[in-house]
């Protein structure tokens, strides 16, 4: 069972946060609701996937931070989307490599003194 107290969880996670702690959790939340609005899946199906993922996570430990929670959310969404066969098995890892390369390129560009005129939106 849980060894940490609620107060520990509160102090770790920040009691007063009202929206998103990270830009990626905002995109993730938005993507999930938007995909459900487009009837790619129902929120009940997503809820079931999230419950399953959180259940697995809590077999080994606790979720005590916002980041830990949204990580479960991300994995649940990924699992659910993969059941829809929307892309090939290796496409996601290839796209991740492209995202990393783009971020790296931008970083190098900035280090070399170039100015990014329009910050790239997270799209």
């Amino acid at each position: 069972m849980q060894s940490d107290t609620l107060l520990t969880a509160l102090s770790q996670s920040g009691f007063e946060n009202l929206t998103f702690n990270t830009p990626w959790s905002a995109r993730l939340f938005g993507m999930t609701l938007a995909a459900s609005n487009k009837q790619l899946f129902t929120l009940q199906q997503f809820q079931a996937a999230l419950i399953e993922r959180i259940g697995e996570e809590e077999k080994d430990g606790c979720i005590a931070t916002d980041e830990g929670y949204y990580t479960c959310w991300l994995e649940a969404l990924q699992n659910l989307l993969e059941t829809k066969n929307l892309w090939q098995a290796d496409q996601l890892s290839e796209r991740e490599a492209e995202v990393v390369a783009t971020a790296q390129h931008r970083q190098d560009h900035q280090r070399n003194g170039h100015h990014v005129v329009r910050p790239e939106a997270v799209k």
């Binding site: 990626w24 993730l28 993507m31 796209r95 991740e96 995202v99 799209k123």
Partner: peptide
Amino acid sequence: KDWQAIRTEAIESLL
């Protein structure tokens, strides 16, 4: 970038 940020961006890009 965190791996979660990378994966989220990659999924959104594919969608």
